[in-house]
């Protein structure tokens, strides 16, 4: 039985992702966003030791640099001029703005690297089938066809290469044309067979009654606790946003960047929401190390 964060009900997990994305978008304050990004790196580390995040690090770095450099050049709104480069003023506000956008982007990307670990395609299809049952069935069929078609495509490629039709050499135009020819062969081949699949579905009684499905995810008591946890902290974040405690005002005048008074309270609430996977997974890690010590 899977334990930890991944074992919660798919809808609860989805709500966590929605809440954190919404939070990343509304908490436009450098400290809030930086804290969120650091937390999400830890979430990645605890879920899969950062393997997935490692694949995306160049994309994250590139996008952040891109935004960090270009926002000050193009954003000409502000009061405090730092430098003048090629008759363009570089404003402090714009630099802070660029930093916040870069943090939001990196945070969203770091969050999505965990998405495929936590919400695997079976959980995703389960949720999808609750909302769009027919469409989910089409998706399931298509997902099954993907590996089959890959195999067929390589078969087709092998056979066609014998005839001298290949994508390996020739001009770009010829390569593209031959590639499309392979796909056209795949189309006629597969459509003809798909009709057989469909007829065998009808023969087994598809469409006669309402489709029943196996529920592999039961709602447990701990799902309710986590649901309350997520909702409570999301409400806290929305209140903080409405009171402008978690937002840095850039216009008309730049606010002091330091956090004061109530803002700390909202920051702690925000961190508690993001680090939900750390609590739940961390408990398991601690249990594991405890059992190891006993042995």
């Amino acid at each position: 039985m899977p334990r930890g964060f991944r074992s919660f009900h798919p809808f609860v997990l989805m709500l966590y992702y929605i809440a954190v994305i919404a939070g990343l978008m509304i908490n436009q304050h450098p400290f809030f966003l930086l804290a969120a990004f650091i937390c999400l790196v830890f979430v990645n580390l605890i879920l899969d030791k950062g393997v997935e995040l490692n694949k995306w690090k160049y994309m994250i770095l590139f996008l952040s640099l891109f935004v960090l450099v270009l926002t000050p050049i193009f954003n000409q709104q502000g009061n405090i001029v730092l430098w003048t480069v090629f008759s363009r003023e570089i404003y402090l506000e714009a630099i802070i703005q660029g930093f916040m956008i870069a943090c939001t982007l990196s945070g969203i990307l770091a969050l999505f690297t965990t998405f495929s670990i936590v919400i695997t395609s079976d959980k995703f299809l389960y949720m999808f089938s609750k909302v769009f049952p027919k469409w989910a069935l089409i998706l399931m069929l298509a997902l099954r066809f993907v590996p089959l078609f890959r195999k067929r495509l390589s078969d087709i490629q092998d056979v066609q290469e014998m005839k001298g039709v290949s994508m390996k050499d020739g001009k770009l135009r010829e390569k593209a044309q031959n590639g499309m020819l392979f796909i056209q062969i795949l189309l006629t081949y597969s459509l003809e067979e798909a009709i057989q699949t469909a007829d065998s579905m009808s023969a087994r009684g598809y469409g006669l009654q309402k489709r029943s499905n196996y529920e592999s995810y039961a709602w447990k008591l701990r799902d309710s606790y986590v649901l309350i946890y997520i909702i409570a902290f999301s409400l806290l974040i929305i209140i903080g946003w409405q009171l402008h405690e978690s937002v840095l005002m850039l216009a008309p005048t730049l606010e002091s960047i330091a956090l004061e008074g109530n803002s700390w309270f909202y920051l702690i609430g925000w961190i508690s929401l993001i680090s939900l996977p750390i609590w739940t997974e961390g408990k398991e890690v601690m249990k594991w190390s405890f059992y190891q010590r006993d042995l």
């Binding site: 089409i138 298509a142 495509l153 469909a198």
Partner: peptide, 19 residues
Amino acid sequence: NMTSREMVMLAVLAAIASV
């Protein structure tokens, strides 16, 4: 109400589009 033939055809085309 889609017939099973229609559904499988849509699935084949979606799969081909991504493959």
